[in-house]
């Protein structure tokens, strides 16, 4: 028994890793943290761009990774409500519990869209705090990045200046990117678009695209053939320029609509790693715009 206790004590006293261990729920926040923190932190994502962020299993490997994290970055707004609370509780890690400095929610620093006036599951998978897919508007990374840099500085005070400088450099690069993207995107203003799920509301808001229909009858509810036919009727005469879906969404409804309405289907990377071109935050939006612009 004494030996076991000594072993336990030895394991508990393992030296803390030099770099800040950051676990993000989704790839975009891991990428943002890495942009700001550089070599002062090691940021990884719990999920990949090919996974539906609403439906994640609280895998043992995620619990093990949460156990050692110094900072947990979540989107919030109930996006991870189906798995993250279990990972936090099972991790036995006091630092990353909700309300602690080691837990950061990006949505708290974003302007939310589609906040429901009433909460009723009859309306599908609605989120009380609004649409949680804030990552598709590049402008959000400035606000979230600023708050994240402040949090990193708080957690790792010795490197506070590094995080502040890291954010300043990122913000400068990002402002230049934004100016470039907005110039490119000006040609798309007011264009009609059909979306599969409300995953791109923020992108549409940024580029000022006009959503003429959603293929899902209710958020999170898969489209039936009858519903798709109704959508087809609804958009007749509106000539949508694209029907778009995220790479993790089922291709069925989008492909059916594309084939029956003659609207080009566009698969957007959605987040970092969504396709081979979207390697980091900059190339994510480069690729997203390129895919929209290529359709005339």
């Amino acid at each position: 028994m004494r030996k076991i206790m000594m072993l336990l004590v030895a394991l508990l006293a393992l030296p803390a890793q030099a770099a800040l261990n950051v676990l993000a729920t989704v790839p975009e926040w891991a990428a943002l943290a890495q942009e700001i923190g550089g070599d002062k932190l090691k940021a990884t994502s719990a999920t990949t761009a090919l996974q539906d962020p609403h439906r994640i299993d609280a895998r043992p490997s995620l619990i093990a990774r949460a156990r050692n994290a110094d900072l947990l970055i979540a989107t919030g707004a109930e996006l991870e409500v189906g798995w993250l609370p279990v990972v936090q509780r099972e991790s036995g890690n006091a630092r990353i519990q909700t309300g602690q400095a080691g837990y950061f929610e990006a949505a708290a620093h974003a302007r939310m869209l589609e906040i429901p006036a009433k909460l009723d599951r009859a309306d599908g998978d609605v989120h009380a705090n609004g649409n949680p897919h804030i990552n598709t508007d590049p402008r959000v990374y400035l606000k979230v990045g600023e708050a994240l840099a402040a949090r990193l500085a708080q957690l790792d005070a010795a490197n506070a200046a590094v995080y502040r400088a890291g954010y300043a450099a990122f913000a400068a690069r990002w402002q230049a990117n934004l100016a470039r993207w907005e110039k490119q995107g000006a040609a798309l203003r007011g264009q009609p678009v059909v979306v599969q799920h409300k995953s791109f509301s923020y992108l549409l808001d940024w580029l000022d695209l006009r959503e003429v229909a959603t293929l899902e009858p209710k958020p999170g509810v898969e489209a039936s053939a009858a519903h798709l036919s109704r959508v087809l009727e609804q958009v007749s005469g509106q000539k949508p320029r694209w029907v778009i879906r995220a790479v993790w969404e089922s291709s069925r409804a989008t492909d059916w609509f594309a084939a029956n309405n003659g609207t080009p289907a566009v698969v957007l990377p959605f987040t970092v790693g969504g396709n081979n071109a979207a390697k980091d935050l900059t190339s994510l939006f480069d690729d997203t715009l390129a895919r929209l612009l290529v359709v005339k």
Partner: peptide
């Protein structure tokens, strides 16, 4: 319950 601080879930 005790979760080991390892990469593998133990």
């Amino acid at each position: 319950k005790w979760l080991a601080p390892t990469e593998t879930f133990i």
